[in-house]
Simulated scan of single mutants.
Amino acid sequence: MCSQEPECFVFAFHGPSASTRKYFCYMWKSGTLKIKNSTGITSGYNLRGCQFKKPCFDEVYEGLKFSNRPYETVQTENPDQCREKCRQDQHCSFYTYYNEGSKCELKFTMPIPTPTFQRMDEVFSGFSNNLDEDFGSGEVCPSQLYRDKQLEGGRYPIKFSAISAQHCQALCNIYPECQVFKYYRNYVKGPNCYMKSETRLISEVITEHQGVTSGRVQKGCKVDFSWKNDVVNGSLSGSAFNVTVKADLECKKACNDEPNCLFYLYVSMNHPAVKHRGKCYLKRDLTLPRPNVFPRPGTVSGFVMNC
């Protein structure tokens, strides 16, 4: 996590205390790591000097519960079967197995970056062409969108930030519980991609709604990532790990050529802030699964294996 976070210089991992019973990972932007004995704490530096590779998580954690809400709960005979169930499900990021009741909870973390998008003049942003596209199978999902319309029924409690309706649809197709979504085209800042998972509340009635593009989840096809080629007017939030002066068309290429870059921001030569003009900010975000971890006897937890 520290190596993925652009501003992290050193970290300290704390085991559970008698008061909190939680695990914590603390990160610092700068400083010197002073070595001293401290029970229950592991510290270190980031590894950004190396090309970041997808980590291999194959360890099983007995007596630990990953408390995030599951998107699916199934019965399995043992923890090994639960782990295998998670490994075979493309949505599953990590799992927790309960010995009592033989319950297996499958859990999810969005595996692609979802920085907040804010519309701004003379600022341009986009995503790297190197984003992982291994979601779904078969032919690429066709674009099926309802412009200036929305599907009626209930609230849309799941929220993300997207640069386009196609981006919002891709997030819906990746998110395991999404059934329908709506994208607010004119939002200036904040979440603009809303999803709903409760099928019983979804109506077939489609009503007019200016500024909204809606759609349904698409299954049995490969998620469309064509939106990552878009360059949009606005800013994608996140800490930059590299800042250079580039021409506008060179900034996206610089992001594509840098394996650690997930998205970028370019400030035009017409921007009112003179000191930022012509600057290209290469950025990344945390995409590793980040479960809430608690000690609990009788449980076994782990991550999907990428080994």
Results as ranks from 00 to 15, higher is better:
C141L: 08
D132S: 13
G49E: 09
P142S: 10
K283E: 01
P113A: 06
C8M: 10
K219F: 02
Q81W: 09
R216W: 09
P6W: 07
P295A: 00
G40S: 12
G101Y: 15
T287N: 08
W227E: 01
L286A: 13
V243G: 02
G15I: 09
E139Q: 13
G211E: 04
Q169G: 08
G215A: 09
V140L: 13
E139I: 11
T287Y: 06
T213S: 04
Q144M: 03
T207M: 09
K36H: 14
D80S: 10
C255I: 08
L131Q: 12
I41M: 13
L47A: 07
R83G: 06
C307W: 01
Y183G: 08
F263P: 09
S102M: 14
K149N: 08
D148T: 00
T287C: 04
Q51R: 12
E133Y: 12
F9K: 14
E250H: 02
G101L: 15
R69C: 12
V10I: 15
L33I: 15
Y146V: 03
P176C: 03
G211R: 01
L282F: 00
K65L: 15
N129K: 15
C280S: 04
G44N: 11
P295C: 02
R290Q: 10
G211T: 06
L249Y: 13
A273R: 12
Y98I: 10
F294K: 08
F13G: 09
E208T: 13
D80V: 08
R83L: 10
I202Y: 11
T114D: 03
R296C: 06
Q166D: 07
G220V: 11
Q81V: 10
A247P: 00
S197I: 03
K196A: 14
P297K: 12
F124S: 12
L47H: 05
N229S: 02
K53I: 10
P297A: 12
N192S: 07
N99P: 05
R147T: 00
E204G: 02
L131F: 11
C255A: 02
S137I: 00
H167V: 03
S137K: 07
A165T: 01
K149T: 03
Q88M: 15
C50D: 10
H271N: 13
Y23A: 05
F135C: 03
T299N: 06
K34W: 15
D58M: 08
C56I: 00
W28D: 14
L151I: 09
C50I: 03
N129V: 14
V304R: 04
K159M: 07
P70V: 11
K107H: 07
S239R: 08
Y97A: 07
H91D: 09
A18V: 10
T96F: 05
I206M: 02
K34T: 15
K65P: 05
P113N: 03
Q118Y: 07
L265C: 04
P55S: 00
Y264R: 00
N186D: 05
G40Q: 13
G31E: 11
C193S: 00
M195L: 15
C82Y: 06
Y281G: 05
F24P: 01
L47S: 07
K103Q: 15
M269N: 11
Q210T: 09
S235V: 01
D285V: 09
G31I: 12
I206H: 07
F241D: 04
N37M: 13
